[in-house]
């Protein structure tokens, strides 16, 4: 590991540099950064990196942290094995 390499999304191994590059390349939301770099698409689904990506985004765009478009979510919000889904209803 490069000593100065700074990982933001640990699950998908996306570095701070890659996220900044995506924003400089035109990404304007956490959503777009995610599609560009895969940050937040790993097993924790962004639970660790979401806030970090939001902060970098606000920083790069010169916004206050509340102004950057917040992350969106979709189910399942936790990793779920395919076998558990046999369609049963309670």
């Amino acid at each position: 590991m490069d000593r100065e390499e700074n990982y933001i999304c640990r699950c998908e191994e996306v570095t701070e540099e890659e996220i900044r590059a995506a924003i400089r390349g035109g990404a304007r939301s956490v959503q777009e950064i995610k599609r560009w770099t895969r940050s937040g698409m790993g097993i924790c689904q962004g639970r660790t990196c979401r806030r970090l990506v939001e902060r970098i985004l606000a920083e790069e765009l010169g916004l206050s942290p509340g102004e950057a478009e917040p992350s969106s979510f979709r189910p399942p919000v936790r990793p779920v094995s395919l076998d558990s889904m046999d369609g049963s209803k309670e």
Partner: peptide, 30 residues
């Protein structure tokens, strides 16, 4: 139990899901 998936219809939902700890990234934090 990570095994049985089901859905149910609730009349009300009370979300008491808490909070997640923040991280601070720096080289070597992995």
């Amino acid at each position: 139990g990570r095994r049985r998936s089901y859905t149910l219809d609730a009349s009300r939902v009370i979300l008491a899901t808490g909070a997640t700890e923040n991280a601070v990234p720096f080289p070597g934090w992995t």
